[in-house]
């Protein structure tokens, strides 16, 4: 098994607050890892460190074999983070949003069509501006954007938020398909029952540590 995330005693600071206090974590390719814990425990910070967004103050870490301390920009191009916002342009249509993300990585029209079809944002919905979508439709559009970006590690912060029951089932199926295709998923979710059914492993994050 290939280790895609390797953190050893990682300390990360948010302002003057230690968001992560010596986290050690190892994730293998093809895992669906659930991060659970109370609000403010450090789940989002851990995802942002893995995305190469938050610098580490102490400890060592590598993502996809790339050193977290020295080469965070390269990490960002190979992982996908979906946080509390969706990263959409509200004055662009669904299709224009996904086309834009596709053009940043040179994805083909076929990949765009597949991503839109997978997340059910094709057809009539494709021509609707993102600002006029429901919360669940925006989430699905953001996930379609993640698909066309060909991320190898999916870092998802509350991915089920705003989705209806059918959307949640589809998301779970999509994540299983992504893993079957070689991706790795790390998700933070408060919906522990649903997420635990999806995850292959669960890690509890609390007080800036992980166990």
């Amino acid at each position: 098994m290939e280790t895609v995330i390797e953190l050893k005693g990682v300390v990360a600071v948010l302002g003057s607050f230690p968001a992560l206090a010596g986290v050690s974590l190892s994730v293998q390719r093809g895992e669906i890892l659930l991060l659970q814990g109370p609000n403010g425990a450090g789940k989002t910070s851990l995802l942002r460190v893995c995305a190469g967004l938050m610098p580490i103050e102490r400890g060592t870490g590598s993502i996809l074999g790339i050193d977290l301390a020295t080469n965070r920009q390269d990490i960002r191009t190979r992982v996908g983070l979906l946080g509390h916002t969706n990263g959409l342009y509200l004055d662009l249509t669904v299709e224009q949003n996904i086309q834009f993300w596709a053009s940043t990585v040179g994805a083909s029209q076929e990949e765009v069509a597949n991503a839109m079809s997978t997340m059910r944002v094709d057809g009539r919905l494709a021509k609707v501006k993102a600002g006029q979508l429901s919360a669940g439709q925006r989430r699905r559009t953001a996930l379609a954007s993640l698909i066309v970006r060909r991320a190898e590690i999916w870092l998802l912060d509350e991915p089920h938020a705003g989705l209806d029951a059918a959307g949640r089932d589809e998301l779970d199926a999509l994540l299983r398909n992504a893993v079957a295709a070689g991706a790795t998923v790390v998700l933070a979710s408060h919906e522990s029952e649903r997420a635990a059914g999806l995850a292959t492993r669960t890690v509890t994050v609390d007080g800036g540590g992980a166990r």
């Binding site: 509390h84 916002t85 959409l88």
Partner: peptide
Amino acid sequence: ADGALDALRVAG
């Protein structure tokens, strides 16, 4: 408005 600039940074 919906964190797009942040998403561009995240995407490297």
